[in-house]
Each structure stands twice: as structure tokens, then as C-alpha cells.
Design a protein around this nucleic acid. Structure first.
Length: 103
DNA sequence: CGTGTGACTCGGT
DNA sequence: GACCGAGCCACAC
């Protein structure tokens, strides 16, 4: 199978995000070279042919809310908790501290 | 090539 | 804080 360059780049950049940290669809899109493709990034994650190898659960929304997850938000929260990321009322605690901006 | 879709984002109300 | 509308993008049809 052949995946698009866009998807390949997104997955590659996502691999740079360390456990215990998270990034956003927007930052991930920018890192992949498509600053305004946050939406498309979400689509790539939804499809996610590398699941669960690719840490798609480390990708959240810019406001700190979880976003979505193929199979259920609960599962995503559980995975994040397992990496030390705390979630409160559907929002990430200390979001800005654990946010990975690809700087 | 035009249209619809969605794990998004921002700005206004 | 919640809701809504508009903008943006890659992808499937």
C-alpha cells in the first residue's frame, strides 16, 4: 500500500513527541509543512494505518480538550493517563507545560 | 474537475 | 464558558 506524503510526514513528526507530552493538530500540521492543515491531520489520525504503533493519542486540540479517538475518547484518556498526562473534565491538566511545539 | 466530509481553529455573539 | 459561522486542507467519489 502507498500512503500520501502528507500522511507519512505527519506520522514521522508525531514520532518526535515524547511520552508524557502532547501536541496539537495545528502544531503537527505546521511541523509537517502544512500550517493550516490541522483538519487534514485529524483525518490522517482517524485513518491511522499504524495504530496503535503511532501515538495518535498524544494529539489534542489547541484549547487542551481531547479531540477525538477512533474507538472512544475514554481509551485515549486512559492511554494519556498511562503516560503521566492528567485529564480533568475532558481537558488536559497543565496543558501548556506538557505541550510539545516542535521548537 | 466539482462536491462533500471531518479526531481543526479562530473570532464574534 | 458555550454556540455558531467561516476559513483551510487533504482525500474519497
Amino acid at each position: 500500500m502507498t500512503i500520501s506524503l502528507f500522511a507519512a510526514t505527519v506520522y514521522d513528526k508525531l514520532r518526535d513527541v515524547p511520552a508524557g507530552k502532547v501536541t496539537t493538530y495545528g502544531y503537527l500540521a505546521r511541523a509537517a509543512g502544512f500550517a493550516k492543515a490541522a483538519r487534514a491531520v485529524g483525518g490522517v489520525m482517524r485513518k491511522n494505518p499504524f495504530a496503535p504503533s503511532v501515538p495518535c493519542h498524544r494529539v489534542v486540540r489547541t484549547d487542551g480538550s481531547i479531540g477525538g479517538f477512533n474507538g472512544g475518547i475514554t481509551k485515549k484518556i486512559k492511554l494519556l493517563n498511562n503516560e503521566g498526562v492528567r485529564i480533568r473534565n475532558g481537558k488536559i491538566v497543565d496543558f501548556k507545560r506538557i505541550l510539545y511545539k516542535f521548537d
